Deep mutational scan, measured.
Amino acid sequence: EVTIKANLIFANGSTQTAEFKGTFEKATSEAYAYADTSKKDNGEYTVDVADKGYTLNIKFAG
């Protein structure tokens, strides 16, 4: 089991951190699914992958 950390960075400057656990593939998939659901309210996003994929910096356009 691994933990994927997602740092969500919103257009207004606020941030949120979420953690997803499971296999690398499952946790990563859940992090992207979470970003997709947040996209409806926060606009399109880009992802900067860090820490060999264990940290995702997800920046929303607003």
Results as ranks from 00 to 15, higher is better:
Glu1Asp: 11
Glu1Ser: 11
Glu1Cys: 14
Glu1Gln: 13
Glu1Ala: 10
Glu1Thr: 12
Val2Phe: 06
Val2Met: 05
Val2Ala: 06
Thr3Ile: 13
Thr3Asn: 05
Thr3Lys: 07
Ile4Asp: 00
Lys5Ala: 06
Lys5Gly: 03
Lys5Glu: 04
Lys5Pro: 00
Lys5Ile: 15
Lys5Leu: 10
Ala6Asp: 00
Ala6Pro: 00
Asn7Trp: 08
Asn7Ala: 05
Leu8Cys: 05
Leu8Ile: 11
Ile9Asp: 03
Ile9Gly: 03
Ile9Thr: 12
Phe10Asn: 03
Ala11Leu: 08
Ala11Lys: 10
Asn12Thr: 07
Asn12Arg: 04
Gly13Asn: 06
Ser14Asn: 12
Ser14Asp: 13
Ser14Cys: 15
Thr15Ser: 11
Thr15Ala: 08
Gln16Ile: 15
Gln16Asp: 09
Thr17Tyr: 13
Ala18Gly: 05
Ala18Thr: 11
Ala18Gln: 13
Glu19Phe: 15
Glu19Thr: 13
Glu19Asn: 09
Phe20His: 01
Phe20Leu: 02
Lys21Leu: 07
Lys21Glu: 05
Lys21Asn: 08
Gly22Leu: 03
Gly22Cys: 03
Thr23Gly: 06
Thr23Asn: 08
Phe24Gly: 02
Phe24Arg: 07
Phe24Gln: 05
Phe24Glu: 03
Glu25Ala: 12
Glu25Met: 10
Glu25Cys: 12
Lys26Ile: 11
Ala27Ile: 03
Ala27Met: 02
Ala27Pro: 01
Thr28His: 06
Thr28Pro: 01
Ser29His: 11
Ser29Gly: 10
Ser29Val: 10
Glu30Leu: 14
Glu30Trp: 07
Ala31Asp: 00
Ala31Tyr: 01
Ala31Phe: 02
Tyr32Gln: 04
Ala33Arg: 12
Ala33Trp: 08
Ala33Asp: 08
Ala33Val: 07
Ala33Leu: 10
Tyr34Cys: 06
Ala35His: 01
Ala35Val: 07
Asp36Lys: 06
Asp36Tyr: 06
Thr37Val: 13
Ser38Asn: 15
Ser38Glu: 14
Lys39Glu: 05
Lys39Arg: 12
Lys40Gly: 11
Lys40Glu: 11
Lys40Val: 12
Lys40Thr: 10
Asp41His: 13
Asp41Glu: 14
Asn42Glu: 10
Asn42Met: 10
Asn42Arg: 09
Asn42Pro: 03
Gly43Tyr: 04
Gly43Val: 04
Gly43Gln: 05
Glu44Leu: 09
Glu44Ile: 09
Glu44Gln: 10
Glu44Val: 09
Tyr45Ile: 02
Tyr45Thr: 01
Tyr45Asp: 01
Tyr45Leu: 01
Tyr45Phe: 07
Thr46Cys: 11
Thr46Leu: 07
Val47Cys: 07
Val47Glu: 01
Val47Ile: 10
Val47Leu: 06
Asp48Glu: 15
Asp48Gln: 13
Asp48Pro: 01
Asp48Trp: 11
Val49Thr: 10
Val49Gly: 04
Ala50Arg: 12
Ala50Gly: 08
Ala50Trp: 09
Asp51Glu: 07
Asp51Pro: 02
Lys52Arg: 13
Lys52Ile: 06
Lys52Leu: 13
Gly53Pro: 03
Gly53Asp: 03
Gly53Val: 02
Gly53Leu: 03
Tyr54Phe: 14
Tyr54Cys: 08
Thr55Ser: 05
Thr55Met: 06
Leu56Asp: 00
Leu56Gln: 00
Leu56Val: 05
Asn57Thr: 11
Asn57Ser: 05
Asn57Glu: 05
Ile58Gln: 00
Ile58Ala: 02
Ile58Lys: 00
Ile58Ser: 00
Lys59Leu: 12
Lys59Arg: 14
Lys59Gly: 04
Lys59Trp: 14
Phe60Trp: 05
Phe60Cys: 03
Phe60Gly: 00
Ala61Cys: 12
Ala61Gly: 13
Ala61Thr: 13
Gly62Thr: 09
Gly62Ile: 08
Gly62Phe: 09
